[in-house]
């Protein structure tokens, strides 16, 4: 794919699961009360005292093959700038097919609008000269990286080139644009 390909990378080594990214997103994006576009996931493996724990901040993966878009009957869900996955609430009927189609539980109905809301990769910032997403900006451990996969010199490209990483549920075949560093 040509042009800009936005992607997000979260470093699970440094993420402490503090949820500043959650609050930072909610206030930046006016997310409805008791809903969140991003969230903290932890998984503890092993038995006491031989334990390991993964901590990471999750959100919409802005999948390259986004089932949420293909099932959308109204075209409200679409590929936006830099290959991000966006929703035009004015077109959304609230049929919720996309919620059912998303393997990651990234979408929800904004009760104030009756239409889909989800992570936008902060295109209102990154497309208008602010290089960071809000969750990235606030993160006290600076565990969130954002940039252009098509630019080999971007921080995300360099990190993915040199560090072990994974995406969530690759078996879902959605080609996430959201990566996690081991």
């Amino acid at each position: 794919m040509s042009g800009v390909r936005y992607a997000m990378v979260v470093d699970t080594r440094t993420c402490v699961g503090c949820a500043a990214c959650v609050i930072g997103c909610k206030t930046e994006n006016g997310v409805a009360d008791s809903y969140a576009r991003d969230w903290v996931y932890t998984e503890t493996a092993g038995t006491f005292p031989n334990l390991s724990m993964t901590v990471r901040s999750e959100r919409c993966n802005h999948c390259e093959d986004a089932p949420c878009i293909s099932v959308c009957p109204t075209g409200a869900s679409y590929y936006g700038p830099g290959g991000t996955v966006q929703v035009n609430q004015a077109k959304c009927s609230g049929c919720k097919a996309c919620i059912a189609a998303c393997p990651y539980g990234a979408r929800f109905i904004d009760p104030n609008v009756g239409a889909i809301d989800k992570c936008t990769f902060c295109v209102h910032r990154v497309e208008n000269g602010t290089p960071t997403t809000s969750c990235q900006e606030i993160c006290p451990t600076q565990s969130i990286y954002f940039g252009d996969l098509n630019d080999p010199d971007s921080e995300v490209s360099r990190l993915l080139a040199k560090r072990e990483h994974y995406v969530l549920m690759p078996e879902a075949g959605t080609k996430p644009r959201h990566f996690y560093l081991k």
């Binding site: 206030t27 930046e28 994006n29 006016g30 075209g75 679409y78 936006g80 700038p81 966006q86 929703v87 035009n88 609430q89 077109k91 936008t120 295109v123 209102h124 497309e127």
Partner: peptide, 12 residues
């Protein structure tokens, strides 16, 4: 013009 997709902007 029912087909345009303006960028979502929370204006915050």
């Amino acid at each position: 013009g029912l087909y345009g997709n303006p960028l979502p902007d929370p204006q915050s």
